[in-house]
């Protein structure tokens, strides 16, 4: 495999998909973030921690602009890093993925990864807007979220390896095995310790838009990486023989 071409196409695909993700967030998630931060500000004024003064709003606008501006850049960074993981797994599993076109193969893998390392963890620990979340528990919540993703991802990998040893007619057993495994983990893992005190229509709207935007990322990643792979064929090289 051509190493430089492989690395470059994987990183570019992830970066482009991440930029799409960041742009989607700006369009559909950002209004919910603004609303949630507005509630946070009101709480600060009510508690006396901050005063509703022009100076406050100048400082607020400054860092909110910085945060909003970072959406696309952070999307590109996150997209590139998750794309790197996706590229590694795609390279190892491409031949066993169904389909005769690399876009189809990449989309199938993107769907599997979306389900196992995003959607199932999201069901257990859904995204929350600002105003939800006690700073005192952020380390615990981070450990729980990352652990669940790792357990689900490595669990899926383990059952995939197991399925390779099974006859074609028995491969469904591996899928059922993963379903049972992750169901047990889902029930056994502790709940998010924080109480949701923000309005539920805001929280649910934010979660729905977050889900849509992340799903757009995975679809974009599958299409772009698959198309790049199809075009650049990093696993193939032209060799000339003279006799």
């Amino acid at each position: 495999m051509k190493t430089a071409r492989f690395i470059a196409l994987v990183l570019l695909a992830g970066c482009f998909a991440g930029i799409i993700h960041g742009t989607a967030n700006l369009a559909i998630v950002e209004p919910y973030l603004d609303e949630a931060i507005g509630i946070e500000n009101q709480n600060l004024f009510s508690s006396g921690e901050e005063q509703d003064t022009p100076e406050f709003w100048v400082e607020y606008s400054s860092y909110r602009d910085w945060q909003k501006g970072g959406q696309v850049l952070a999307g590109a960074i996150l997209g590139t890093s998750v794309g790197a993981l996706f590229g590694i797994i795609f390279a190892f599993s491409r031949r066993s993925l169904p389909g005769n076109h690399n876009v189809k193969k990449a989309l199938i893998l993107a769907g599997i990864m979306w389900l196992t390392i995003y959607f199932i963890p999201f069901l257990k620990y859904p995204a929350n807007p600002p105003t939800v979340g006690d700073p005192e528990t952020v380390v615990l919540r981070s450990i729980l979220y990352l652990s669940f993703i790792a357990i689900s991802g490595f669990g899926a990998l383990g059952f995939y390896k197991l399925s390779n040893r099974l006859d074609k007619s028995k491969k469904i057993a591996a899928v059922l095995g993963y379903a049972i495994f992750i169901s047990v983990i889902f029930v056994a893992m502790p709940q998010n310790p924080d109480e949701v005190i923000a309005p539920m229509d805001l929280v649910n709207g934010f979660r729905a838009m977050s889900l849509i935007a992340v799903s757009i990322y995975w679809i974009a990643l599958g299409i772009i990486l698959g198309a790049f792979w199809q075009k650049l064929q990093p696993d193939k090289s032209l060799q000339t023989y003279t006799s």
């Binding site: 495999m1 690395i7 960074i77 790197a84 590229g87 031949r95 032209l238 000339t240």
Partner: peptide, 30 residues
């Protein structure tokens, strides 16, 4: 002369290491 397309399926370890580092670093950063 004869030109043939050779398919090399082996994934380079160097590429895997580089991509794994980028994955970890980017995930931590964001």
């Amino acid at each position: 002369s004869e030109e043939i397309i050779v398919s090399k399926q082996a994934v380079p370890t160097f590429a895997v290491v580089i991509l794994a580092i980028i994955f970890g670093f980017g995930l931590f950063l964001v």
